[in-house]
């Protein structure tokens, strides 16, 4: 589960490079996100634009990362592809995350 982190001003942007976050990779994803978000930042945006597929284990891992960051920071999401968007919408978990169309839009917006 390769992830690439970069600081954009005071925002930590983490890009998922794999095309799926599923049951086979969810634990690894969560552990790597925990390590990468140890870097202090005002905001954290997870760029999911490469991720074509996310299952309920992947969703659970994203929720777990959100809880790891709380209460100091919120996990913001960007670039949901159609299948990923569908999983968030059907579970109504799109109501608890700030979701940006893309990283650029997220960076322009004040967290």
């Amino acid at each position: 589960m390769p992830l690439k982190a970069s600081m954009q001003g005071t925002t930590l942007v983490i890009r998922a490079l794999d095309d799926r976050i599923d049951a086979a990779g969810a634990i690894q994803f969560k552990e790597q996100m925990r390590d990468l978000t140890a870097t202090p930042s005002a905001r954290v945006i997870l760029d999911l634009s490469n991720v074509q597929f996310l299952d309920s284990s992947g969703l659970g891992a994203v929720v777990a990362v959100m809880k790891l960051l709380a209460p100091q920071r919120k996990l913001e999401l960007a670039g949901l592809t159609p299948t990923v968007e569908k999983v968030f919408r059907l579970t109504r978990m799109d109501t608890v995350f700030t979701i940006h169309a893309g990283v650029d839009q997220g960076l322009r917006q004040v967290g």
């Binding site: 309920s56 659970g60 929720v63 959100m66 999983v87 059907l90 579970t91 109504r92 978990m93 608890v96």
Partner: peptide, 16 residues
């Protein structure tokens, strides 16, 4: 389905 505000990390599968 779990309630979104409970931030459950599982229990979504059969709902989907």
């Amino acid at each position: 389905p779990p309630r979104p505000e409970d931030l459950a990390e599982g229990g979504f599968g059969w709902h989907l």
